[in-house]
């Protein structure tokens, strides 16, 4: 598999580390235990396009949001994580 890092260009799989589903959003402080439980454990078992977190640890160390088809491994988009680099992020 090859992933096109938005910073480095197309690279081989060995440079990347897979984390998993990029959809769950970390609950704000004060969230209930149930909400955090869902964030930590609840995952969709997607057959098809799935947004995933990948780390370009063997390259520029950017976290990436990769849309990958779990059936074909086809990658349809790769976006940097919000905080990759020094972009100003307002939360």
């Amino acid at each position: 598999m090859r992933i096109t890092c938005p910073f480095c260009g197309e690279r081989e799989l060995g440079e990347f580390t897979y984390l998993g589903d990029a959809k769950p959003v970390r609950p704000a402080p004060g969230a209930s235990q149930d909400e955090v439980y869902d964030y930590v454990y609840l995952r969709d078992n997607v057959a098809g396009a799935m947004e995933e977190n990948w780390y370009h640890g063997g390259g520029c160390r950017a976290w990436l949001r990769v849309t990958r088809n779990t059936l074909t491994h086809e990658i349809s988009s790769v976006e940097p994580a919000a905080g990759a680099g020094a972009r100003q992020v307002v939360k």
Partner: peptide, 17 residues
């Protein structure tokens, strides 16, 4: 190595602000 990866995840994904 794993902690570096974890901290970068925290920096870039969880707490980008």
């Amino acid at each position: 190595g794993l902690v570096m990866q974890h901290l970068e995840f925290c920096r870039q994904v969880l707490f980008p602000e």
